[in-house]
Design a protein around this nucleic acid. Structure first.
Ligand SMILES: [Zn+2]
Ligand SMILES: [Zn+2]
Ligand SMILES: [Zn+2]
Ligand SMILES: [Zn+2]
Lengths: 166, 166
DNA sequence: CTCCTCGCGTTATATTATATTGATCATCAG
DNA sequence: CTGATGATCAATATAATATAACGCGAGGAG
């Protein structure tokens, strides 16, 4: 399995998220924390309505705006990432919520991540490759383009699934 | 304006598309050609329903499946590209439909393109940067991932809009 | 001709996302 | 404490994007 989803990891990520939000003055409410927990618990990205269904089990009365508002907050604060190709969301395990908790400041660095989507098991791995980032910056500059943010999503086979073809 | 949409260019691209399809035994029907023409005529990516509205003016009775089926054909044959962040479609001006018409074979090379999306004018420029491609391949390999296809969409400001901020 | 495939029309439905309105709650100046 | 303020959230409705399902008719293979 490409994406890890064990409870220990999820709990640790939730703790980091709380610290991260506290340091920024952002309010990680119970609802937002619960949505983040649901996302972190999943080994694969979750769509908004899947998330809504799961939310409903402990939160009757949840409706689309409920989950979309939570997702807006979480993506703004880089605690989750939207995978455009899948219209789905994955918890961040590499970005600010780690790094900033470590050294305790709140710069808004670009956090230019890339996502490796396995077409077989559905797992998504987040990486942050400097070579890709600089190549994109160089290519943009050559084209006279001033980049602000990049979406990079690679489809293919993860290590496990490539080893077991089929 | 970043994306060119003059009629001459569109006509030439249509001609190349016909040759490209003929060489592959793919049928560029009147309907598909018309949809491709609509896309090529636009300086900005078009959504499926915008396309549907325009199609209806000359093709009453067109419905969502009409345009989605045409788009499926056109994207499969790399004559148009889907921009994931925009749920919209842009005509290809750099890929197989050019190159393959030139040297007349029908290999299915990856045609790994990148798209530069201007947040101001909405124009999208397609580039095919070898550095980005190799950086992505290297990063994937390092992660034990076997890449098949990459979605690379950069948001920012095109040359014209960066010069005229606001 | 008969069978078969493919493109397309047509209707209905599924999936994803947002608009709107008002209730609720925390916070804080006065 | 009290009232003003702004953010969060509930609840309902609607918009925007995409696909499923069924049938018909043209055109080629046998
Ligand atoms: Zn991240
Ligand atoms: Zn896999
Ligand atoms: Zn192209
Ligand atoms: Zn521009």
């Amino acid at each position: 399995m490409a994406a890890e989803a064990d409870a220990r990891d999820g709990e640790a990520a939730l703790e980091r998220a709380e610290q991260h939000c506290a340091a920024r003055g952002a309010k990680l409410t119970a609802l937002r924390r619960q949505v983040l927990g649901l996302i972190l618990d999943s080994p694969v990205p979750l769509g908004a309505y899947t998330l809504l269904d799961r939310l409903k089990t402990t939160h009757p009365g949840a409706a689309p705006p409920t989950v979309y508002r939570a997702l807006e907050f979480l993506t703004e604060h880089r605690l989750v990432h939207r995978i455009e190709r899948l219209n789905a969301f994955i918890g961040c395990r590499v970005g600010c919520s780690d790094a900033c908790a470590d050294h305790g400041h709140e710069h808004d660095h670009a956090h230019a991540a890339q996502f490796l989507i396995c077409g077989s098991c559905g797992g998504v791995e987040e990486i942050e490759d400097a070579g890709v980032g600089s190549a994109l910056a160089a290519a943009s500059r050559r084209a006279g383009f001033r980049p602000a943010h990049a979406t990079v999503e690679v489809e293919g086979l993860c290590r496990g699934c490539a080893g077991l073809p089929g």
